[in-house]
C-alpha cells in the first residue's frame, strides 16, 4: 500500500472511530497504522465532527437528561466548587497581540492618568481564592475615562507571582460583540514599552461582573490596566479612540 493510500485508509478508520462504527478488526488496524503514522492524525476529523454536531444540534429540540442523572452530576461538583457567589463571570480571550515596538500605550495611558483625580475606592473581593490569598496580591480601583463610561467603577486584582488576576467591574455598558468588544491592556514598562494584551471580553448584562485576566505575556510590574473599546476580536495596537476605564496600581 502506498503512503498516500495508507494515509487515506488511516483517515477512513479515524472517521469510523469518531463516528463509533469501527469493527474490532478495524480498531486493531487503526491502532497499528496510527503508531506507524502518528503525525498523520491531527484531530481535525474529530474537530469537524464536533463542529457538525454543535451546528446541527441547534436544529433539534434539546433532549433533557433524566432528573436522577442530573442529580448525580450535581453531586459530583462538590470537589470543584470554590465558592457559591452569584456574580457573573465573563470569559476573556486573547486577542492577536504578539509584540509591537510601540510606545503608544505608555504615553497615552500616562496622559489619561494625569487627567484623573477622582479614582474610586476599591472594594473587597471574594472568590478567585488563589488570587485573593496571594501574598503579593495588588488591588487597584478602576475609574471610567471617556463618556459614556465615566460611571464605570470596580477594581483590578493581580498577582505577579501567580501571573493571574481578574477585574471586577460595575456600571459597564453592555456591548454588542458583533459591533465592538472591550479589550484590556496591561502596561509594564519594566518589560516593554508596548502594553501586554490582557484579552478581549464582553459585557452581556448590567450588574457586577468578574472577568479573569488572561495576559499572554509575563507581567512583572504593572503600572496601569487600561480597558479600551475595539472592533470585534480586538486589535494588535490600540488607537485608544475609546478609553473605557483605567486602573493604576501604585
Amino acid at each position: 500500500m502506498s503512503d498516500s493510500s495508507t494515509i487515506q485508509r488511516l483517515e477512513d478508520l479515524e472517521a469510523g472511530r469518531i463516528l463509533g462504527d469501527l469493527s474490532e478488526d478495524e480498531w486493531q488496524e487503526l491502532e497499528e497504522l496510527s503508531k506507524k503514522h502518528h503525525d498523520a492524525l491531527d484531530g481535525s476529523l474529530e474537530w469537524a465532527a464536533a463542529q457538525l454536531e454543535a451546528s446541527l444540534a441547534g436544529n433539534r429540540a434539546a433532549e433533557k437528561m433524566p432528573a436522577d442523572l442530573s442529580g448525580k452530576v450535581r453531586a459530583g461538583t462538590a470537589d470543584f466548587v470554590t465558592d457559591s457567589a452569584d456574580e457573573k463571570v465573563t470569559p476573556i480571550s486573547a486577542g492577536w497581540w504578539k509584540s509591537a515596538p510601540a510606545a503608544w500605550a505608555v504615553a497615552a495611558v500616562l496622559t489619561v492618568l494625569l487627567a484623573l483625580s477622582w479614582l474610586i475606592e476599591p472594594e473587597t473581593g471574594s472568590g478567585f481564592a488563589g488570587i485573593d490569598s496571594a501574598p503579593d496580591r495588588i488591588e487597584s480601583p478602576f475609574a471610567g475615562v471617556d463618556e459614556p463610561y465615566a460611571t464605570v467603577s470596580g477594581a483590578v486584582i493581580w498577582s505577579d507571582e501567580l501571573q493571574e488576576g481578574y477585574m471586577r467591574l460595575e456600571n459597564m455598558p453592555v456591548n454588542d460583540p458583533a459591533e465592538k468588544q472591550y479589550q484590556l491592556w496591561i502596561v509594564d514598562p519594566s518589560r516593554d514599552e508596548a502594553p501586554v494584551d490582557g484579552g478581549v471580553f464582553d459585557i452581556a448584562e448590567d450588574g457586577t461582573v468578574r472577568i479573569p485576566i488572561d495576559a499572554k505575556l509575563r507581567v512583572d510590574d504593572p503600572k496601569a490596566f487600561l480597558i479600551t473599546l475595539e472592533k470585534p476580536g480586538g486589535v494588535v495596537k490600540s488607537s485608544q479612540d475609546v478609553k473605557v476605564a483605567l486602573a493604576t496600581p501604585s
Binding site: T77, F80, V81, T82, D83, K88, V89, A204, P212
Partner: peptide, 20 residues
C-alpha cells in the same frame, strides 16, 4: 445566571452557579 459563551469560564473558576 451564565449565558452561553460565559459558562465554561465560570466553571473553570469553580463557580457553583456556572456548573449548575
Amino acid at each position: 445566571q451564565f449565558e452561553e459563551g460565559q459558562i465554561l469560564a465560570g466553571v473553570a473558576l469553580g463557580r457553583e452557579a456556572a456548573m449548575e
